[in-house]
Amino acid sequence: MDHPDDYLIISSLQEDGKRLRPGDWVERISSALANFDEHRRLHYSTSVHPCIIEGEKCLVVARGLETADPAAYAFVMEFARANRLRILADRRSGARALPLPAGNP
């Protein structure tokens, strides 16, 4: 089972408290790293996927992505840094733990 610290949460809020525009950036990045199944349904990766935490759109990034796909990890992290987005380690557990999409690694 994954440990909560194995995930980073990138918030839609910038360091100055403003919300990043465009508002669909989380879905755009998640979709770029997703796969389609045989029924043409989009499946988000368990390594990068959208999530809403306390009403805020966030991007969940597995720390293991840095090893599994260094280019994708570098892209996501550079995007977050360039846009001064808040990056936090996910420390929730139990019932508050992140729901991860099933299927794709």
Rank of each mutant, 00 (worst) to 15 (best):
L88H: 13
L85Y: 02
L65N: 10
P101H: 05
Y73C: 12
A80Q: 05
P99F: 03
L100C: 08
A32K: 11
M77G: 06
E38K: 00
V26A: 02
L59T: 10
L59P: 06
R81S: 08
Y73Q: 08
D6Q: 13
P101A: 05
P4D: 07
L33G: 00
H39L: 15
I53N: 11
R41K: 15
K57T: 08
L42D: 03
L20K: 11
P22A: 00
D90C: 14
E56K: 01
S31E: 15
S12C: 13
N35F: 14
L85H: 09
E15Y: 07
A68V: 13
S31L: 12
Y44R: 06
D2F: 14
C51K: 15
R92P: 05
H49C: 13
L100W: 05
A89S: 14
R84H: 10
S47C: 13
P4G: 02
D69H: 12
E56W: 04
L8R: 01
V26H: 05
A82Q: 02
K18C: 05
S47H: 08
I52N: 12
L98C: 07
S30R: 07
R86K: 12
L59A: 01
R21Q: 14
P99N: 08
P70H: 04
K57E: 03
A71C: 03
F75C: 06
D24I: 03
A82M: 06
H43E: 01
F75K: 08
K18Y: 11
A32F: 03
A82V: 07
R21I: 02
D2E: 15
C51N: 13
R81K: 14
I53S: 01
P22Y: 05
L98Q: 04
V60Q: 00
N104H: 09
S31F: 09
Y44S: 04
G64C: 04
P4F: 10
